[in-house]
Amino acid sequence: MSFNEPASRNVYAFGSFTLDNWANPCADPTMCDALVRSAQIGLLSTLVATVLGTLAAFALVRHDFAGRSATNLLVFLPMAAPEIVLGSSLLALFVAAGFSGQLGFWTIFVAHVMFCLSFVVVAVRARLAGMDDHLEQAAMDLYATPAQTFWRVTFPLVFPGILGAALLSFSLSFDDFIITNLNAGTTTTFPMYVWGVAQRGVPMQVNVIGTLMFLVSVAIVVLGEVGNRRRLAART
């Protein structure tokens, strides 16, 4: 469809082959503006959610504190709640805090951090729970300081889980529509743009963006698999 030049209003009926869609991906400037905005929100929310979620996962796995069970429950609530409930609850929070007339980029950012945080905690906590504690104990027996043990043993072992959680968070943030739509005000993200133009005909450049995103995702998976096989081959 990214090479399609529709012959009628039915944009998903292949009309004729063209390269114009790839040559002019920003034929509609508002689409590229929405795309950049979604990428910015996705990157920022992923960074914040990954840092906070990783710290929370370490606290839940490695430390026993008052309210730990309640915290575990709170972590799962955003994942279990329907998006319409989470979005409307966040909207009510912003209105109560006096931000009803200032909905936009930053309210979307806060909303995305809130629901991405749960996925990061779950992913990193699973990685920590499956990690062998004897490796850290062996490092400390060899006179490594706590900081050296963390950065040279613990962090490299947990990093795949952190990276996976970050990639998942970015995908969820970039793709989200319901929560974003409720807390966006007049700000438009890429999913909101696609939903809006769908009523009058989706431009074929949207398929160009979708194809590029798909290729990037496949490249990340392939590179990760190649890296894993090389490491396994080096060990054997």
Rank of each mutant, 00 (worst) to 15 (best):
F3A: 12
E5G: 00
S8L: 12
R9C: 03
V11C: 04
S16K: 06
L19A: 11
D20F: 05
D20Q: 11
N21P: 08
A23V: 10
N24M: 05
C32K: 00
V36D: 03
Q40Y: 07
G42T: 00
L43R: 03
L44F: 15
S45E: 00
L47I: 03
A49I: 06
T50V: 01
T50S: 01
V51Q: 01
L52I: 03
L52P: 00
G53F: 09
L55I: 11
A56Y: 05
F58I: 12
F58K: 04
A59K: 02
A59P: 03
A59D: 14
H63Y: 13
D64Q: 10
D64L: 12
D64A: 15
F65I: 01
A66G: 15
G67H: 15
G67N: 13
R68W: 10
R68F: 12
A70G: 15
T71V: 12
L73I: 09
L73M: 09
L74R: 06
F76R: 02
F76E: 06
P78T: 04
P78E: 06
P82H: 15
P82V: 11
E83I: 00
V85I: 13
L86C: 12
G87N: 02
S88D: 09
L90P: 00
L91Q: 01
A92D: 09
V95T: 15
A96W: 06
A97E: 07
A97P: 01
F99V: 13
S100L: 10
G101N: 13
Q102L: 08
G104M: 07
G104C: 06
F105W: 13
W106L: 13
I108L: 08
H112S: 06
C116H: 07
C116W: 03
L117H: 09
L117E: 11
S118W: 03
S118M: 04
V124E: 04
V124K: 07
A129L: 15
G130M: 06
D132F: 02
D133E: 10
H134D: 09
A138G: 11
A139N: 11
A139Q: 05
D141T: 13
L142M: 14
L142W: 05
Y143R: 12
P146T: 08
A147T: 13
Q148F: 03
T149S: 02
F150H: 04
W151Y: 14
R152K: 12
V153D: 11
T154D: 06
T154M: 06
F155W: 15
V158L: 00
F159C: 14
F159N: 15
F159V: 14
L163M: 13
G164I: 07
A165V: 11
S169V: 11
S171N: 08
L172Q: 00
F174I: 03
F174W: 05
D175R: 02
I179C: 04
T180N: 02
N181W: 00
N181G: 04
L182Y: 01
A184K: 02
T186I: 14
T186P: 09
T188P: 01
P191W: 04
P191N: 05
M192D: 11
Y193Q: 11
W195I: 07
G196W: 08
R200H: 12
Q205S: 11
V206H: 00
V206M: 07
I209L: 05
L212K: 05
F214C: 10
L215S: 11
V216N: 06
V216G: 07
S217R: 08
I220N: 01
I220D: 01
L223K: 05
V226P: 04
N228P: 02
N228A: 14
N228H: 14
L232W: 01
A234K: 15
R235T: 10
